[in-house]
Amino acid sequence: MPNNPPPEADFTLGDIPASPPVHYAEQALLGALFLDPHRIKAIGRLDPTHFSSARHRALFAAMTELTPPAPDLHAKAPVWINAVHAQARPHSRGLALSYLHTLAGACPEPAHAPAYARMVRSDHARRTIRAHAELLIQAATDAGLPDPAAVTLRRADELAALVDRLAATFPSHPGSLPRTPAPALPSLQDGPDIASEEQLLLSTATAYPAALPPMRWLRPEDFTTVLYGGLYRCLASLSGRGEPVDKVTVLWEAQQHGLLTAAFGPHEALELLATPAGPPEYWGEQILRRSLLRQAHLAGLHIQAFTEDLANSPHQMITGSRRTLANLTAVRTRWQHATRQPPVARPPARPGPAARAGPYPSRTGAPIASSKPSR
C-alpha cells in the first residue's frame, strides 16, 4: 500500500491576519476626502508614501494630482470619485470602483479627516524607524562587508537624522519614555580567532606596558570573554597606579581580583601572557570594533522593539531611540579616538613558544606578526 501523506488543511478566512488599526485610519481618511474633497487642505502635510497600502497610496496620489470639483457639482454627480478612479487605476491593477465607494462608507465623520491624517503620519513614522533599525541590525551583523564599522556607523547616522526630523513633527507629552521590555541580548561572537586576538592583546600589553596609557579607549566590557576582560582590568589597574607590569605582577593582580580558579590557575595565566605578537593597538582595535558592532546590533534590536510595540506613541519611540543611540555614541567616540591614535614605538616582538608568522598590516604600513601558528 502506498504511504500517502495526510492532506493539508484548507486555507480559510480565519487564516488571514487581522488588518492593523492604521488600515482603518487610511480608509477613513480617503473616505472623508471622497465625501468632501476640499478637506484635503485641512489635513496638514501628507504624502502618498505615508500610506501603508499600495492601493491607498495610488488613490491619495491621484487626489493630490487632480483638482476637486466645485461643491455644487460634487453634490449632484460622482465626477470626483470617477476621476480619482481613472487616475489611480493605471498605478493599482485590479482597483475596482466599488472599493472607492466602500472607502466612502468607511468614514465615520468627514470632519475628523485631520485626526485620521495624524494617525497615518504616526504609523508611517513607526514603519520608517523600524526599517532604519533593521538596516542597522543588518550592517552590524553582516560579516561580508568590507568595512562593517563604517557601514554600521553610517546606518546609525541615518537613523539618528530620521529621529531628529521626526522630533520636529510630533509634539512631546507626559510619559514620553517607552515601557517596552528590553529585547533578548544578541549572542556574543565566539570562536578560536576571536579568543586568540583577545589573548594576544593581553600578552602583548603585558610585554609592552607603555601602550596601556594611550589605550584608554579600550574597556574590559569590550571583551567577549569575561575572564579576558578581567585580566585587562588588572593590566589597566597596574598601569594606572604606576606599578610594574609583567607576567608575575599581572598574575598577582588577577589573584586579588578573584580571577584564578581551578580551571584557570597560575600556570594557565602565565602561559597565556607569555606569547606576545604584534602591537597591542592592533589587537585592541579588533576587540573594540567587535564591541562597536555588538552595541549597534543591540541598539537596533531595542529600537525595533519600540516600533513593534503599538502602545508606544511616536514621541515615545523618538525618545527611546535617542537614548539607545546615545549608548552607541559612547562606544563610537572611543572607536574614533582609537583609529586616529598613532602607535607607540617599541622594539620588535619577541618570539614566544608558539611562534606566529604571516603579515598583518600595522599602523605604519610595515608587516607585523600574525596570530596564525607557524608550521
Score class of each variant (00 low, 15 high):
residue 200 L to D: 06
residue 150 A to D: 08
residue 88 A to V: 10
residue 68 P to E: 14
residue 302 H to N: 13
residue 128 T to C: 00
residue 76 K to Q: 13
residue 71 P to R: 15
residue 81 I to S: 08
residue 134 E to R: 13
residue 279 P to A: 12
residue 317 M to W: 06
residue 15 D to F: 11
residue 36 D to C: 09
residue 63 M to H: 13
residue 367 P to E: 11
residue 283 W to C: 01
residue 320 G to S: 13
residue 338 A to R: 12
residue 86 A to P: 08
residue 103 L to D: 04
residue 222 D to P: 01
residue 156 A to G: 02
residue 264 F to H: 10
residue 328 L to P: 02
residue 297 H to S: 05
residue 372 K to Y: 11
residue 252 W to F: 09
residue 351 P to Q: 13
residue 168 A to P: 01
residue 321 S to R: 11
residue 59 L to H: 05
residue 42 A to G: 04
residue 65 E to D: 15
residue 320 G to D: 13
residue 187 S to N: 06
residue 348 P to Q: 04
residue 39 R to I: 11
residue 326 A to R: 15
residue 35 L to F: 02
residue 2 P to E: 03
residue 240 G to H: 11
residue 48 P to K: 11
residue 113 A to V: 06
residue 300 G to M: 06
residue 271 E to F: 03
residue 370 S to A: 12
residue 319 T to C: 10
residue 291 S to D: 07
residue 222 D to G: 05
residue 227 L to N: 05
residue 77 A to P: 00
residue 28 A to G: 02
residue 120 V to S: 01
residue 315 H to I: 14
residue 136 L to D: 05
residue 84 V to T: 12
residue 138 Q to F: 03
residue 353 P to T: 14
residue 253 E to C: 07
residue 88 A to W: 09
residue 200 L to R: 08
residue 298 L to R: 15
residue 260 L to Q: 09
residue 266 P to H: 09
residue 361 P to A: 05
residue 105 G to E: 08
residue 328 L to T: 05
residue 193 D to C: 01
residue 175 G to I: 11
residue 352 G to V: 12
residue 346 R to G: 00
residue 365 G to M: 05
residue 256 Q to D: 15
residue 26 E to H: 03
residue 84 V to R: 11
residue 19 S to G: 01
residue 326 A to K: 15
residue 213 P to A: 13
residue 84 V to E: 11
residue 333 T to F: 10
residue 175 G to M: 15
residue 200 L to Y: 04
residue 21 P to V: 02
residue 62 A to Q: 14
residue 308 E to L: 14
residue 257 H to K: 11
residue 249 T to G: 03
residue 332 R to V: 00
residue 139 A to V: 03
residue 348 P to N: 02
residue 171 P to N: 14
residue 197 E to Q: 12
residue 204 T to Y: 04
residue 145 L to Q: 09
residue 98 S to Q: 07
residue 243 E to W: 10
residue 317 M to R: 15
residue 93 R to D: 01
residue 242 G to Q: 09
residue 48 P to H: 10
residue 57 R to P: 01
residue 40 I to T: 13
residue 309 D to P: 07
residue 216 R to D: 10
residue 302 H to M: 12
residue 371 S to W: 07
residue 272 L to H: 08
residue 157 D to E: 03
residue 251 L to C: 03
residue 10 D to M: 13
residue 200 L to I: 03
residue 340 R to I: 00
residue 347 P to E: 10
residue 72 D to E: 12
residue 358 G to M: 05
residue 61 A to Q: 15
residue 189 Q to R: 15
residue 92 S to E: 14
residue 170 F to Y: 12
residue 317 M to Y: 08
residue 143 A to D: 10
residue 311 A to Q: 14
residue 95 L to N: 05
residue 371 S to I: 00
residue 114 P to K: 09
residue 110 P to C: 02
residue 153 L to W: 04
residue 336 Q to G: 08
residue 200 L to K: 05
residue 312 N to K: 07
residue 319 T to P: 04
residue 2 P to A: 02
residue 344 V to D: 02
residue 88 A to M: 11
residue 145 L to P: 02
residue 141 T to K: 14
residue 14 G to E: 15
residue 219 R to Q: 14
residue 278 G to D: 06
residue 203 S to Y: 04
residue 44 G to P: 01
residue 311 A to G: 12
